[in-house]
């Protein structure tokens, strides 16, 4: 009996370690642990905490916060305000980034130009906002120049409204969008454009039939990442916009709930709604990628 039992044991074949390794788990897998702990402590736990908190309102039933948000236009208008800023800004940034990337792709001094364009990222939103406040203000250079040149009689109102925030989001968002776009554009084999040219495609046809279809998936990712950044706008909406009116974005609503009403539960609900709207847009955009070719953008295997 014993002999049979021991053979049966041998028949198990490779030991646990080998079996795990065959499935891709080995000692190297342990390197994931710090990142997993980090994300658990700093993302998963706070998120779950906020999620549960949002269903424990100060008064009323467990959905009271959400009912309050969607029945009060002072709250639910913030979704439209935020989308009204972030979607056009993201689209404009993407629209600007594409031609610039196409030009920069051909340049020798790419590094220098890229550095200059990326500078606004390092400056921070607040510095840009303060700068714009002066530059675009009624006594700022921009208006004074236009008046001096005789284009306008009265200074344009460019700050403390929608356009102030818009401008600041373009300035701080563009470099990020541009860098991502540039990496996608340079990832496309230039021989494809040459091939299209020898086949009789003019510049526009080459863009629409070769570049655009190959770039769409990249543009979708770029749109999502840029959009999420713009959607969480806060400092410039307060400093450059009219935080009580047209640029009362959703993060201001969350801030007020948390630090003016001291209603953390309500603030959590607003944050959850904010996250949900972002997620909805991102899922929508990424799902539409399925309509396009998503394989490698070079000339196949080669």
């Amino acid at each position: 009996m014993e002999a049979i039992a021991s053979t049966a044991h041998v028949d198990h074949g490779p030991n646990l370690r080998q079996r795990l390794a065959a499935k891709g788990f080995d000692a190297v897998t342990l390197l994931v642990v710090p990142a997993a702990i980090f994300s658990l402590l700093l993302f998963v736990y706070p998120f779950a905490f906020g999620f549960i908190l949002s269903f424990e309102p100060k008064s009323g039933g467990w959905l009271a916060n959400y009912q309050r948000f969607f029945s009060d236009s002072y709250f639910y208008d913030t979704i439209a305000n935020t989308l009204g800023l972030s979607v056009p800004v993201t689209l404009l940034n993407l629209l600007l980034a594409v031609p610039v990337s196409f030009r920069v792709r051909l340049m020798r001094r790419q590094r220098l130009l890229t550095t200059i364009l990326v500078l606004p990222i390092t400056l921070g939103t607040v510095l840009v906002a303060e700068g714009l406040l002066n530059y675009l203000g009624p006594q700022g250079w921009f208006n004074r120049t236009l008046i001096t040149l005789g284009f306008i009689d009265q200074p344009l109102r460019l700050v403390h409204n929608y356009w102030g925030v818009f401008a600041s989001l373009v300035i701080t968002g563009f470099p990020f969008t541009f860098l991502l776009t540039l990496s996608y554009v340079t990832g496309i084999d230039p021989a494809l454009e040459q091939a299209a040219a020898t086949l009789g495609a003019n510049a526009w046809q080459r863009f629409f039939h070769v570049y655009l279809p190959l770039l769409m998936p990249g543009f979708a990712i770029t749109f999502c990442l840029s959009f999420v950044q713009a959607f969480s706008v806060f400092p410039s909406a307060v400093l450059l916009g009219e935080p009580a009116g047209s640029t009362r974005v959703i993060s201001i609503a969350a801030y007020q709930a948390a630090f003016e009403e001291y209603d953390y539960s309500m603030a959590s609900s607003v944050a959850m709604i904010m996250g949900f709207v972002q997620l909805a847009i991102v899922v929508l955009v990424l799902a539409s990628r399925g309509l396009f070719y998503r394989g490698p953008a070079s000339g196949a295997k080669g």
């Binding site: 021989a191 040459q194 091939a195 020898t198 086949l199 279809p213 070719y293 490698p296 070079s298 000339g299």
Partner: peptide, 15 residues
């Protein structure tokens, strides 16, 4: 020019 060209890496449109 309308010349047909065959490229070294074929340059087929992957999409």
């Amino acid at each position: 020019r309308g010349f047909g060209m065959v490229f070294q890496n074929y340059a087929l449109f992957p999409h």
